[in-house]
Design a protein around this nucleic acid. Structure first.
Lengths: 200, 200
DNA sequence: ATTAGTTATTGACCGAGGTCAATTTCTGTA
DNA sequence: TACAGAAATTGACCTCGGTCAATAACTAAT
């Protein structure tokens, strides 16, 4: 109860993470192999799995940490007021999530936690994303007929849709940010404009 | 050129698919192992990979076929005119895609083809989905300020978002169809209604 | 019918993620 | 300091998807 975790535990975990980060910096997430990580960290294979449930748990942590760093910038910057500004601020995250198909897949799979107990790093970042978005929705001049919460969920949906189509051969010709912008323009209908030809 | 494919090829492939279908009916997609398929089909392991690039290629085909059967019903039925009707007709597909997390993941991964050459069965069904949706968008009384194509892409985005949150511990309390309905109500703003409190 | 060339099948083998009983290291207590 | 119990580490072993050189089966041409 007093000291359930030993010093060497932290040290070993740090070694594993450091080794993984070096390897990823060199070869990317897709190419990472557990064998290489433990070899570089100088520990046995079993040790890895004493620290991480599986390979994906490490990925969850590393990718989550990367996303967190990007979201830190979102928080530091002034809230975007227009749709182009929203897209612009989102751009670094789009770039990271589409840098490797594998990264996108991991984020998709871990963006929602299955059990409440194990809300992992990536799932946490989705929470941050959502919170930030809700804030932006309130300060910008967007439609007011639906709640900021729903607006935020929609932005998330289009955010992922834009990336999914980016990976698709039939649609990858259109720039990711352009597509997202046209989605958001349609979703977050700007307040001051009156609907063009709908009220007959 | 005349007969590039032999009879036994078709027979072997049919045996493999039949074996897989039996196993899946019994244990589900998640539990399917290639070893079991080849054993039940009475062929060697290598044969499997002479017929399918990898395990996922078989899954693509089987899951794609299942989705196709569901979409056949969509096509047979009269086009839904209201949002509740749209959700109702979509319900069987939602049920199938959320029956196993693994199925959802496979569909996500294969819904967009990486190369134009290998548009697989699942990617084809997304095309059908899109086409059907475009048709429905035109006959229903939905917003006219954006193209049916964009409307359809949005429906797709919300369709997947609803399922993703369904798998998420934080959000799985709300029924899948209810969530989708509230998404679509906000996205496909019905024409006849005038926007409530937006034009100040 | 024989044969040459093509296509399909085989199964031993590999790679990489993941497990676990045995062992070592650590910590608090007498 | 000695020792008992807990925690961390080890590496042989397992599973399962996937490969490939060798072999068998098929086809068409002479």
């Amino acid at each position: 109860m007093t000291k359930p975790v030993q010093q060497r535990t932290l040290k070993t975990r740090a070694k594993l993470i450091a080794a993984a980060e070096v390897l990823i910096a060199k070869e990317g997430y897709t190419a990472l192999r557990v064998e290489d990580v433990v070899q570089k960290a100088g520990v046995a294979k079993g040790t890895f799995f004493a620290h991480f449930r599986d390979k994906d748990a490490l990925m969850d942590r590393l990718i989550g940490a990367h996303i967190d760093r990007i979201l830190d910038d979102w928080e530091k910057a002034p809230a975007p007021k227009t749709i182009p500004e929203v897209v612009a601020i989102m751009s670094p995250l789009l770039t990271f999530l589409t840098s490797e198909r594998y990264v996108f897949d991991v984020v998709m799979r871990y963006s929602g936690a299955t059990l409440i107990e194990d809300i992992g790093p990536i799932a946490m970042t989705i929470g941050r994303f959502d919170e930030l978005m809700c804030g932006w929705m309130e300060v910008g001049e967007y439609r007011a007929d639906v709640s900021p919460q729903l607006l935020s969920e929609g932005v998330q949906a289009f955010f992922f849709q834009a990336m999914a189509l980016h990976f698709c051969a039939l649609h990858s010709d259109i720039a990711l940010t352009d597509r997202l912008q046209s989605y958001l323009s349609a979703w977050l209908i700007v307040k001051t404009e009156s609907p063009s030809a709908s009220c007959t």
